[in-house]
Structure formats: structure tokens, C-alpha cells
Nucleic acid binder design. Structure first.
Length: 1026
RNA sequence: GCGGGGGUAGCCGAGCAGGACAAAGGCGCAGGACUUAAGAUCCUGUUCCGCAGGGAUACGAGGGUUCGAAUCCCUCCCCCCGCACCA
């Protein structure tokens, strides 16, 4: 067998030496009439983030892209498949920081990562000292990024990807930053860049925004921002502090259900907690200490009152029994104690709606109990619930909250099911409840419909942000919601922008198609997107110092950079001003009507040649637009929509992207592939563990694009066996008994020369027909990105055809017939398994050369022909022969029928008699069959009787037609009739049938002891086993 | 909650512009060949019934449309994914 890793390395080296995948714009020939100019195909995949090694799951995306790139090359396109590296953002910075600070966890993780590469080439264990030395250098983010970018590039080469590496760049290189600045200026010009307030999850300890990755368990249980409505309850006059001029002191209660304000009966305060009085604007607000801390990150006008005289801290007890005014009708309501009030949720003050909130209802019941039993004194009357929502299914008790508590048997505030009851009731009320006459203008309306309106209507209300759950950072710092006062956004709300986004999407191809509709929805849903951060690697935000452009916003139109990146390195960075990119990418000059390179060159601060400008402009014009972007569905609602929208905003329609394909992620043995699961197989190990071609084949065949691919070891093994069998088939047709190589081909005497046309038997023609039909189908599928179907067709199905062929003919003849199709077969498989195909291709060419040693001298050159440079095989249409295939199917179905009879009757046959419908006595059936096949089932019998002139055959005719009708598509004959000379076929195949069943075969003989003959129908002969 | 995608044999998974579907391919399992043996490989079988190529049940549950439904429509149950500032 082949040593795959040697083959891989050999051809990767040769491809590189021969610059096979360098894609150059064909612009020199522009002025000439060049018939040979190829169509271009510009394919991109999102560049990997260079913070660590890639694994087999990532590899699926890139592998599929490479298969497409190689296929397009076979189709004759000038294919550009470039790659860069993503470096901007916070993760790499965090890694470097962690390593600089000596965080064990990070260091260990990176030692493991580095070891993967230190290990990749050698079998020996990686040298731990070397690994450690490398990780030590990782305290600088650039080093981390450079290291992994380099390693990933090496991985990609190892995977045989046909990338033009000259164009590689990373997102922190100076020329890239210049490009990003330009992009933002373009967005600014159209008014897409805005600034304003924005709530965000935030760590007090770290003093910065935190995302999913920074929060403890953030990936499992997401933390989101929740908007509470903070309602102000004015302390009633007699309770106002007389010592200070604070006639405007309010207790602030935050709620998620502002519409329930109409049913408020009291406030709840936790008597054991500490509250504070704080000046907000011109008012004094009372809330919990925790709430104050949060609020101070949300508003700028919060002033903490200092000095004891002002009594900033208030004991919860001190608030008890006082009266406040609710904001709707100025009713006075009491402040009551409740232990369930958590001061770290909301404002630590809760307004009570006992008719509709189970907690509140139970809270009041508790107080009532205390009053009755005389435990503690309740100095104010316990209020009665006020019902404000009518809701079906809650008529048994007066108040819905009471009803659900009764039904669930909840009796006191310690019952854990209170939370559940709250959820159920809330859901029911939200969707089905109707507000009643107590709700003024909102009477008769559903809550779901007016919730937001209530907030506005309650102009007394403020907004208070809270996290959706209590959360801490991975280092234990408290996570709250902060409101950034001056956040920069990209504002996608402009309807004209969205319209062009929709138009762009409408004209694009999506595969799988379902994502197109989804993309339209995403565009509708887009609003504001923060586009700058305070920290991280990246490009300085051009409109304000101290901000870095957020890393998804800097990766939206960068495909344009690939078209010129390799040449841009010769241009001084200082020249890359706005005018420069305006000209290259948009063809714009510094003023109106002077869009030519001379004028642009004059504008630039550094002298660069007009030729270069012209050349770059042409390069870009040649390659753009991006013909295909291939990635995974998780990118749809972020990167891809920005990619599309930014193209819509910046480029003219002729440069908008053409197509997007998406392939799902990969799991391993049904599990998500992740570091924490410990089931990661690095891409760097694929060659060693499986072989690159096998991996690629698996990526191609295992799942459709829209299906999660599951990396299962047992499936890999199965595929490996098939793959090896396939290679053996190839080999046996190349090896000629010299013993070279290995496999079953060794030592075989027969020369596997292609069959000449004059030698073709029916079976040969059948196989060729099958092959070229499959080839035709597969090319079509391939072209529609249905790689899996194409692959299965050209591997599994063809192998089955050959197996059958071998049974009908012989192993020796199979070797020869494969030689007839071998080149075409290798070519169509080469996008998927390029290394082995390249190897066999050269072997084949070498053999041919040896055989025709004295042919012309170009044979030496011929040897250098790469399969990677071939064109798609022409379909030899003349070999596609429906009649030949139908004959074979006819035979197969006959054999199956006989086998079934033998199986059931368990007869060992002496002789098998076959009676066809085209035999003399039954021929009328064929005529009748043809006559009635177009007629509706229910009219068939009537029609048949009209045709049947021979009265003696009436019964037989009826049963024959019934048979046709009942066969329900099982026998092909019902759907279509294909005229075959059955007798002739059977005479020809008599020997084969005799061999197959080990007995004599009689065809349309007189002998018919059981009267079977009359059961023959066209294409389904009658059978008698004697 | 909103939006999207699913539920097919012991398992993974095709099929889903209605008709060659008892259901591709693979895994597993059973039997056989080869082998001293194991492994690998290769054949055969893998819903039930049937001594003549046939029949009966099946594609989450229930209903409907149709000559005919895994495929179309409705209801219900269950599962998965996204909901952003994060690469």
C-alpha cells in the first residue's frame, strides 16, 4: 500500500515548486483579443482567528472550500483561493496578558497547543523545554498571533489546500489598518457611524465590558441585559425628612411588569437590609446599596450623598410602615416587610400586586396571619388585593394569584414553587389576559400588545438595567449592567440601506437555499451594532482616540484586499490614504470627473507610480466581486450579514458578492468538539492519524452541507476500507504485472490495456454507459455544490457497478475496462482526494511514456503534467446508451425473480424455463400494453376490451390489465414501456444465466407443465422452475 | 418569548417538486468463504407471513387532501440552533 504521508508531502512540495495555485489576474492581455482568457472565480473563506490550533471541525469548512476551488479549476476557471489571518480583538490580548501575569491555566493550555506543533513532524515527544521557551514568548500578543498564523498556514498546506499564499496578511498589519480606516470613513460618509448610550454587561472589578467568554459559565448559561422599569413612589408628606429640603424623595421599585402598576397595594422592603438615599438629578432616590452601585454605572447624574447628617444609609426597618404615593392616582400605600426581597435584584424594593403576583399574594397572607395570631404588630391595615386583569381559567377565586397558589397548594413564602407559579401566571396573563376598567386608557387590551406603551405612558418611570441572572467573571468579579454613555455604533436602521441589502441578497445564490430567507430576516432585525471597544488589538477608531475598531466590524469587506495584497507590499504605507483606496476599489478620483491614476497619484502624500495605481485598480477589477464565500451557519447573523451590508453600502452593485455556501459544523462521536470535552483532534494530526485524502473524502461524503457532520472512528474505518479498495482497483489497472507497487496488482500477468472498441461486449458498453452517465450527473451536482451526492456517485455507486461488472465478466476484464475510464475517473475525484489522484495520474503518465518510448520528445514534459491542472473530462456521450442499461436492468430483475422463487420453494432447479411476453403466443400483450399505457387506470380495462378482438382471450385480457394496474409502480412497466427484444437478450445471456443458477435454461420452449406461459407480461417474463 | 431547523429500521443517516420505498450508504448483528486460529477481507441475510416471483404492517402521535403520502395540509407531543457587540 501507499505511504500516504509521503505522497502528500511529495505533491504538496511539487505544487508549491510549480506554483500551481498562484492565481494571476489576466490583465496584460486585456487590449488584445484573447480567446483563451479564462473566466475567473474568486473564492473566500473567513480567515481563521490566530489564537490557537485549528481542529478537524474547523477543517471541514476549509476542506469543502478547497474541494470547490479545485473543482472550479477543473471547470476551466482561473481560481483565486486566498487566505489571511484574523488577529484583532480581545482574546489574543487576554491570552498574552494571562501568560504575562503567569496564570497557570493559560500557560498550561498554551503549552499543550504548542506541543501539538512541536510534535507534528516527529514521532518523538516534544521537547518540553523548547515548548516552555516558546510559551514564554507569548506574553506579547503579536508573538501569539504570529506563531499560530504560521502554524495554521502550515496546517493548511498539509491539508493540500490550493491556496495562493502570496496574498497572505493579518489584520494588524499597517496596510490592513489603513484599509480599515478607509472603510470606516466610507461608512461615516453615508452617516452610518453614530454614538450614544448603550447598556452592556460589565465587570466592576475589571472596569470593562465583559462577554460570554469572560463570564463564569457564560457559554452554558448566557447572561443578557434585561430592561426593568423603575417606578418612583413619592414618600408621603408626613414621612418626608423635615430636616432637609427633600420634599421630593422617592422610593424606587423596579419591575418587569409595569402594566401592573394599576393594581399596586403596597411596597415591599427587606427589613434586614441596608438602603441608601441618593441624589439623582434634582431628586432623592431610595434603593438598596447594591442597586446604587449598579445605577452609578448606568447614569451620570447619580450623586452619592455624603456626611452622616444627611443619613445616606437607611436601615430597612426604618422604612417600614411609612406611606408612599403610587404614581398613577396618588393613592397612599404602605411600605410592608418581606423577606423574599433580594436587594441584589433590581432596586431592592418591590411594589406589590397581590392580585396577580403569587409572591405578593403570599406576602400579604403572611402578614394577615401574623395579625391574626398576634405575632408582631402590624401597625397599618393589611391591604386588599386589587384585580386589574381578567383572564380565562382563573374564575374560581377572586384573584388569579390566589387561584394559582390554591391550586398548587402554595402556603407560605418559603415554598420553592412560588417561582414556578409566577412564571405560569405571568405567561397566561401576558398572552391571554385583558386589562380591566381599573387601567384607564388600557381597558380591554391585551398585555402582550400594550406592554411597551405603558412604559411610555408612565412618564414617571425610569429605566434600570439588570443582568438576566446573577453572574461573576471567571476571576470572580461581579457582573452588572453598565451603560456606556458614548458608545460608537454602526447604525443599520436606515431603510434605504436595508433595501439595498435585501436587493443584494435577492440577487445572490445561497446554498443551502433556506439561508437566503433567513438572511433577509437578519437584515430586517439588524439595528445598532457597537463597532468600537476600549481595548483589544486592532485599528484605531478614526473619529475618536482611545477606541479600537471592534473585530467583527473590521472583517467585512476585506476580501477586496486579497485582490491586491501581494502587490500592496511594494507600496509605502503612508501612501495608503483615502484617495488611494477610493481609486483602487471604487474608481473614484480626488474630485469629480478626474478619476484617473495621474490625478490620484498627485493627491497622495508619498510618491507612487501611476503604473502601480493602474495595475492595482485592474487587479481589483479583474477579481472582484467575490464569487463565492463559504463558511458555517453560525456566521450568518453576525459576520455574513455585515459582509453583505457593508458591500451594499460601499461598493457598486457589480461588485456585490455572488454566492454564499454554508456547511454545518462537525461533532465527534456525537459530541461537540471542544477543549473542555477533551475530544479535540488538531488539524495538524490529521495526516499522521488518518491521512489527508481520507479526511477530505470523509468531509465530502459524510454529510450534506446542511447537516452536522459526525466524526466517528468506526465510520472512518469503514471509509478507509472502501477507499483502499478503490485505490486497489485503480492500481490494478495501472500496474502491469511488474510487481511494482503492491496490492493485488502485483504479479498479475495480464496487461491492463484499455479495451478497444471492436472488443466491446454488451457488459462493457453497459459499464461505460453507467460511468459516463454518473460522470455527467456528478458534474452537475458538483456544480450545484452537492458534493456529497457527486462523491457518493463517483465512489460508492461506481464501485458497485464495477463489482457487478466483475461478476458478469471477470476480474481480468475489469482491469482493462477500468483502464478505459481511469483518467476521467481520477480527474473527477481529484478535487476531493488530490494527493492520491496526482500520484496515480503521474504513475499512469509515466507508464504511458515507458510504453511509447520512441514517441515524440514532449513526453518528458508530459510527465510534468499535473492532474491539478487538468480540465474536466468531456462526457463521452456516445457511450451513454439507455438501451444497454435497460437490457441489463431487465436481466437483473429477472435474476432477482428467479432467486426469490428458488428461495421460497427451496427447489434445486434442473432447468429454468423462461417465457417472454414477446414470444409469439403472448405478443398481443405488448401491443395492448403500449396501447393502454397512457390511459387512466380506471379506463384501462374498458379500453383494452375494445382493442382485444379475440373473444377467447377476454378473461386473460382482464387479468393482464389488472396486473398492470396493481403493480403500483413496482415493476417499472407500469410507468413506462421501453421496447426491448426480450427473446434476443435472453438468448445472448443464456450462458450467464446457466452459470448463475447452475442449471439449464429454456427460453420460450413449448414445455410448460404448469401453464406459466400466460403470466408473462412485457419486461417481466413468466418463469417455471423444473 | 421571537425566529429557524428537525423527529425515518438496533444505531448514524439518505429520501421530502406525491407514484420503482421495506426504504441509498455506512455501522452493528447473524450465517457462510478464506485462515491452524484470531484479525483483515469477501459474499449472504437482517419487519412479519408465504413451498412461485406475492401479501400484510411500517417513516414522532392523531386527523385531512389524493386512485396513491415518509413526502402536501391541520392539530398535538418531543428535540436542536440563533437572539448580537463575541471571535
Amino acid at each position: 500500500m501507499y505511504k500516504y504521508s509521503e505522497i502528500e508531502k511529495k505533491w504538496q512540495r511539487r505544487w508549491e515548486e510549480e506554483k500551481i495555485f498562484y492565481a494571476d489576474a489576466e490583465i496584460e492581455t486585456e487590449s488584445e483579443i484573447d480567446q483563451d482568457q479564462k473566466k475567473k472565480f474568486f473564492l473566500t473563506v473567513p480567515y481563521p482567528y490566530a489564537s490557537g490550533p485549528l481542529h478537524i471541525g474547523h477543517g471541514r469548512t476549509y476542506t469543502i472550500a478547497d474541494i470547490i476551488a479545485r473543482f472550479k479549476r477543473l471547470q476551466g476557471y482561473n481560481v483565486l483561493f486566498p487566505m489571511g489571518f484574523h488577529v484583532t480583538g480581545t482574546p489574543i490580548l487576554a491570552i498574552a496578558d494571562g501568560i504575562a501575569k503567569g496564570e497557570e491555566e493559560v500557560i498550561e493550555r498554551y503549552k499543550d497547543y504548542v506541543a501539538i506543533y512541536a510534535d507534528a513532524d516527529a514521532d518523538a515527544d516534544p521537547d518540553p523545554e523548547r515548548v516552555e521557551a516558546i510559551v514564554k514568548t507569548f506574553d506579547k500578543p503579536e508573538i501569539v498571533a504570529d506563531f499560530f498564523a504560521e502554524q495554521i498556514a502550515a496546517d493548511f498546506k498539509m491539508m493540500g489546500y490550493s491556496i495562493d499564499w502570496r496574498r497572505k496578511f493579518n489584520t494588524t498589519e499597517p496596510f490592513y489598518k489603513k484599509f480599515i480606516e478607509w472603510q470606516f470613513k466610507k461608512l461615516y460618509e453615508i452617516g452610518a457611524i453614530k454614538r450614544g448610550k448603550y447598556p452592556i454587561t460589565f465587570s466592576i472589578e475589571d472596569g470593562c465590558a465583559v462577554g460570554e467568554d469572560d463570564i463564569e459559565e457564560g457559554d452554558i448559561d448566557k447572561v443578557s441585559v434585561v430592561e426593568y422599569t423603575a417606578i418612583k413612589f413619592k414618600l408621603s408628606d408626613q414621612d418626608q425628612d423635615q430636616d432637609q429640603d427633600t420634599s421630593n424623595t422617592y422610593l424606587i421599585a423596579a419591575t418587569l411588569r409595569p402594566e401592573t402598576i394599576f393594581g399596586v397595594t403596597n411596597l415591599w422592603v427587606n427589613p434586614d437590609a441596608r438602603y441608601v438615599n441618593v441624589k439623582v438629578g434634582d431628586e432623592f432616590w431610595i434603593m438598596s446599596k447594591e442597586a446604587l452601585e449598579k445605577l452609578s454605572y448606568q447614569r451620570e447624574d447619580v450623586k452619592i450623598l455624603e456626611g452622616e447628617g444627611e443619613g445616606t444609609e437607611i436601615d430597612g426597618n426604618a422604612l417600614l410602615w411609612k406611606q408612599v404615593k403610587e404614581p398613577v392616582a396618588d393613592r397612599e400605600i404602605p411600605i410592608l416587610p418581606a423577606s423574599f426581597v433580594d436587594t441584589d435584584v433590581g432596586t431592592g424594593l418591590v411594589y406589590s400586586v397581590p392580585a396577580h403576583a403569587p409572591y405578593d399574594y403570599i406576602g400579604l397572607e403572611d402578614l394577615r396571619k401574623r395579625e391574626r395570631v398576634g405575632v408582631g404588630v402590624v401597625p397599618v391595615p393589611v391591604p386588599e388585593p386589587i384585580k386589574i386583569i381578567e383572564i380565562e381559567g382563573y374564575e374560581q377565586y377572586e384573584f388569579p394569584a390566589r387561584e394559582i397558589c390554591k391550586k398548587m397548594g402554595i402556603k407560605d413564602a418559603n415554598d420553592a414553587r412560588l417561582e414556578e407559579a409566577t412564571q405560569i401566571l405571568y405567561k397566561d396573563e401576558f398572552y391571554r389576559g385583558v386589562l380591566n376598567e381599573k387601567c384607564k386608557d388600557f381597558k380591554g387590551l391585551k398585555i402582550a400588545a400594550i406592554k411597551d406603551e405603558v412604559k411610555t405612558w408612565l412618564n414617571m418611570a425610569e429605566i434600570f438595567y439588570e443582568t438576566s441572572r446573577k453572574a461573576v467573571t471567571r476571576t470572580g468579579g461581579k457582573v452588572i449592567v453598565a451603560v456606556l454613555q458614548d458608545q460608537w455604533f454602526i447604525d443599520y436602521r436606515d431603510m434605504r440601506w436595508k433595501d439595498s441589502g435585501h436587493k443584494l441578497v435577492g440577487d445572490m445564490t445561497f446554498y443551502p437555499e433556506k439561508y437566503k430567507a433567513y438572511m433577509h430576516e437578519i437584515i430586517d432585525w439588524l439595528t445598532l451594532r457597537p463597532c468600537a471597544r476600549r481595548r483589544g488589538l486592532g485599528t484605531q477608531f478614526p473619529f475618536e482616540k482611545g477606541w479600537i475598531i471592534e473585530s467583527l466590524s473590521d472583517s467585512t469587506i476585506y476580501m477586496a484586499m486579497y485582490t491586491i495584497a501581494h502587490q500592496l507590499r511594494d507600496v509605502p504605507v503612508d501612501a495608503l490614504e483615502e484617495a488611494f483606496f477610493d481609486y483602487i476599489f471604487l474608481g473614484l478620483g480626488p474630485g469629480l470627473n478626474n478619476a484617473n491614476a495621474e490625478n490620484v497619484a498627485k493627491e497622495l502624500p508619498v510618491q507612487i507610480s501611476v503604473d502601480i495605481l493602474n495595475r492595482l485598480r485592474k487587479e481589483f477589477e479583474y477579481w472582484y466581486p467575490n464569487d463565492l464565500r463559504h463558511t458555517a451557519p453560525p456566521h450568518l447573523s453576525n459576520h455574513l450579514v455585515f459582509f453583505l451590508m457593508h458591500h451594499a453600502a460601499i461598493f457598486p452593485a457589480r461588485h456585490w458578492p455572488i454566492a454564499i455556501t454554508l456547511s454545518e459544523l462537525m461533532t465527534r462521536e456525537g459530541q461537540k468538539i471542544s477543549k473542555s470535552k477533551g475530544n479535540v483532534i488538531p488539524l495538524a494530526h490529521v495526516s499522521k492519524l488518518y491521512g489527508v485524502d481520507l479526511y477530505r473524502l470523509y468531509c465530502a461524503l459524510n454529510a450534506d452541507f446542511d447537516t452536522l457532520s459526525n466524526w466517528r472512528e468506526q465510520d472512518i474505518d469503514a471509509l478507509r476500507r472502501r477507499f483502499n479498495a478503490l485505490i486497489t482497483i485503480f492500481d490494478e489497472s495501472i500496474e502491469t504485472g511488474t510487481g511494482a507497487g503492491a496490492g493485488a496488482g502485483a504479479g498479475v500477468e495480464a496487461d491492463a490495456d484499455a479495451l478497444e472498441e471492436y472488443e466491446f461486449t454488451h457488459t462493457d458498453r453497459w459499464l461505460l454507459s453507467k460511468f459516463y452517465r454518473r460522470l455527467q450527473e456528478s458534474i452537475e451536482w458538483f456544480d450545484g455544490f452537492r458534493i456529497r451526492e457527486a462523491g457518493i456517485n463517483m465512489v460508492f455507486n461506481l464501485m458497485n457497478d464495477l463489482k457487478y461488472y466483475e461478476k458478469r465478466e471477470s476480474v481480468e476484464r475489469r482491469r482493462r475496462i477500468v483502464r478505459n475510464i481511469l483518467e476521467d475517473w481520477l480527474i473527477i475525484l481529484s478535487p476531493i482526494v488530490p494527493h492520491i489522484c496526482e500520484e496515480l495520474w503521474h504513475k499512469l503518465k509515466l507508464r504511458d511514456r515507458d510504453k511509447d518510448r520512441d514517441m515524440d520528445m514532449d513526453q518528458e514534459k508530459e510527465k510534468e503534467t499535473f492532474i491539478s491542472r487538468q480540465a474536466l473530462p468531456g462526457i463521452k456521450l456516445k457511450f451513454i446508451d439507455e438501451k444497454v442499461e435497460r437490457e441489463e436492468e431487465y436481466l437483473v430483475s429477472l435474476v432477482e425473480d428467479v432467486q426469490e422463487i428458488l428461495k421460497i420453494t427451496r427447489i434445486t432447479p434442473n432447468k429454468i424455463y423462461i417465457y417472454t411476453a414477446d414470444a409469439e403466443t403472448e405478443r398481443w400483450k405488448c401491443e395492448l400494453f403500449k396501447a393502454v399505457r397512457e390511459i387512466a387506470d380506471k379506463d384501462k380495462i374498458k379500453e383494452a376490451m375494445k382493442i382485444q378482438k379475440d373473444k377467447s382471450k377476454r378473461t386473460e385480457t382482464v387479468s393482464f390489465v389488472k396486473q398492470l394496474i396493481n403493480s403500483k409502480g413496482k415493476s417499472r412497466s407500469k410507468l413506462e414501456y421501453f421496447e426491448l427484444n426480450e427473446t434476443e437478450i435472453l438468448r445472448r445471456e443464456k450462458a450467464y444465466l446457466a452459470k448463475e443458477f447452475g442449471c439449464e435454461i429454456g427460453i420460450n420452449e413449448e414445455h410448460d407443465p404448469k401453464g406459466k406461459k400466460k403470466f408473462a407480461i412485457p419486461l417481466k417474463p413468466a418463469i417455471y422452475v423444473g
